[in-house]
Write a protein that binds this DNA or RNA. Structure first.
Lengths: 237, 237
DNA sequence: GACATTTTCTGACGCTCCGTCAATAATCAG
DNA sequence: CTGATTATTGACGGAGCGTCAGAAAATGTC
């Protein structure tokens, strides 16, 4: 623990300022619109100073993505604590996913940006491993719930690791939100309520694996509303 | 039907030449590496000529994406004909998805590129609707299989449209392949065989919806291998 | 074939953006 | 106060996109 001089504190603070300024630009106008020149002008600093903080534009995006991934992990962790029943915990995480992608759409969008090869590759080794760690920890939370379910006898894994099991739900939720974000014409194709349909698919998948207790579609909507409300109030506080 | 002059045929042909030249660049070195200047040099034409064919860089990507979407649709259509049993037809389409994303990874990558807001927005109205039509038709093929399944009594839709039903499988397969492409470290997270696990998830989802006949994990691997081989040889011919 | 008109082709140009770096200013240590 | 260290600046090189006036080729007309 070192005591920072005024100047040093100023620099640390400025890093936050850069990110705070970059995020809305990125969200409102996209990656192309985020220009280092304009960012510097808005900051009222010279471009060179920006480059003292981040070696390139991509690193700024990566730094923002880390903030987003952290938020999601926290939401997952809270969701996983909302019940003592394994299946409800998993469903709560599903709700957290939905909340994250809808109410925190900015964060989801930045995460998606990072899945672009160019941005990923230009990010520093350090931030790359940091991001991997974030992902690993989020996976750990969900896989933990699955392992608990197996331990308590609520679920039997059919010849795959807990992580492979989780991967299915990850693909389902990530895929649906990515498609929703990039295919605005889903309703024209006949997918009127993609969110609702994905919830059902997630539950049916759990049912398919025999995750106890089974949930019928009759209760599902009512069930969902109660759970979503609880998570809403609890996770986003 | 008009008869084209030599010159006109030359122009049509050149359009193909541009696409044929752009595709490998895009795949090997990514979107950033695709430069209009370099493309023109390689074509041995001036840049202006390129711009006579495509009003901007994004349109080239969109044109390539249309080719890719067409290929996928064709693969879906063939897969849907490989059996008379509804469930096998759906599984065959799943295999086609897997094949498309793995053996035709170039095409899948270009499709993903198009899901980038910047590229999509700069594409012409005409190509945008063309792309939507492609998507609609692919969805139609799969939704058709689902409707046949319902008609034959193999499946009951639980309060959702056939398209919403399909959306789940779309999200599952798209999501998994997108994650695999952008998270090369999946095995480090514990997801050793993502492809195999996604197959299982797809089947379990069908089982969960009670799609007849149910498939147990005991047969699944053997079943899969037989089906995959049949599709491999038939779809990629 | 000669000339006019239309179409196609060309590449220099303006613009924007990224990332660098030598020069300048601010801070610090003794 | 002064020399050394650290931080800041913005002009610059380089690359890419898209344009457009003028050159070249093709086509039409007599």
């Amino acid at each position: 623990m070192q005591i920072l001089s005024r100047k040093q504190r100023e620099i640390v603070q400025r890093e936050q300022q850069i990110l705070a300024l970059a995020r809305p630009i990125l969200l409102r106008d996209g990656y192309q619109a985020l220009s280092m020149d304009r960012l510097a002008t808005q900051m009222e600093y010279a471009k060179g100073t920006l480059y003292n903080h981040f070696p390139n534009k991509e690193e700024i995006v990566a730094a923002l993505a880390i903030e987003s991934l952290e938020l999601r992990r926290k939401m997952f962790e809270r969701a996983a604590l909302l019940s003592s029943q394994s299946r409800e915990r998993m469903m709560a995480i599903g709700c957290a996913c939905e909340l994250y992608a809808t109410s925190c759409a900015e964060h989801f969008a930045i995460e998606q940006l990072l899945r672009n090869a160019i941005i990923w590759e230009k990010a520093s080794e350090k931030r790359q491993t940091l991001i991997r760690t974030c992902e690993l920890r989020a996976m750990g939370v969900v896989a933990g719930v699955v392992r608990d379910a197996v331990a308590s006898g609520d679920l039997q894994l059919p010849g795959m690791t807990a992580e492979e099991f989780v991967f299915g739900f990850w693909a389902l939720t990530y895929g649906s939100h990515a498609l929703m974000a990039s295919s605005p014409s889903l309703p024209d194709i006949g997918v009127n309520d993609p969110l609702r349909s994905i919830r059902y698919h997630g539950w049916t998948l759990m049912n398919g694996y025999g995750w106890h207790p089974q949930i019928t579609f009759a209760d599902s909507d009512r069930y969902m509303n109660g759970l979503v409300e609880r998570i809403m109030t609890d996770v986003t506080s």
